[in-house]
């Protein structure tokens, strides 16, 4: 253990001081365990999964790979402060959130993408989000959510698509067989 040091940084708009007693402590550990800011997630802590993605002076980084000691005087934005409302709304409406553990990191990456490229195509979206692992969704609805968010942000009109997947994927069809009324049969007088 070395001498402690105090690191001052701005996190989601608030001036924060972190007392770090190890030179190698990661920004992710400081945020989560020292400051109680658990919005950024810890799925791998070796820069592979992207769950801890934050904006450091506006650039997306894995907070687990940044030493807190490097952050003196810098601006950190997590899922709490980095993500425009339409992006979050689109993730909710499109079903891009399942277990949600990857979501904070993905949202920050999407915010960064849409800041650079307001109307990305699928290929650009895939490239931009290639560093964010998701184990639940197969990514289909995440791509769709990015399109919906981009559209909402382009005209400033918030929208909640009812069955928004048709926007992205016209190949979801449902066939229902005629059948006995198993749905309501038992209890309908």
């Amino acid at each position: 253990m070395s001498e402690g040091m105090r690191v001052r940084m701005r996190v989601d708009g608030a001036e924060i001081a972190a007392d770090v007693d190890r030179p190698g402590e990661s920004l992710l550990t400081s945020l989560r365990d020292r400051l109680g800011l658990t919005g950024s997630k810890n799925a791998c802590e070796q820069g592979e999964c992207g769950s801890c993605t934050v904006l450091l002076d506006g650039l997306p980084v894995c907070a687990c790979l940044v030493a807190t000691a490097q952050c003196e005087g810098r601006e950190v934005k997590t899922v709490v402060g980095a993500v425009p409302r339409p992006v979050r709304d689109a993730f909710v409406a499109c079903g891009a959130v399942q277990c949600g553990f990857c979501t904070p990191g993905l949202l920050v990456s999407v915010a960064d993408l849409l800041d650079r490229e307001p109307d990305p195509d699928d290929a650009l979206i895939r490239e931009a989000l290639a560093g964010n692992l998701c184990r639940c969704t197969g990514y289909e609805k995440i791509i769709e959510a990015v399109h919906v968010a981009a559209e909402a942000m382009s005209d400033g009109v918030p929208r909640v698509p009812a069955r928004s997947h048709l926007h992205h994927n016209q190949w979801i069809n449902v066939t229902t067989f005629p059948r006995g009324d198993a749905e309501t049969g038992e209890d309908t007088p």
């Binding site: 290639a130 998701c134 994927n169 006995g180």
Partner: peptide, 22 residues
């Protein structure tokens, strides 16, 4: 594990062939 670059577009056709017991 698959990244977004590894996953292709997925086209779904969902069939509702009801199980009367469920």
């Amino acid at each position: 594990i698959p990244t977004i670059l590894d996953m292709p577009p997925m086209r779904l056709h969902i069939v509702e062939n009801a199980d009367p017991e469920a």
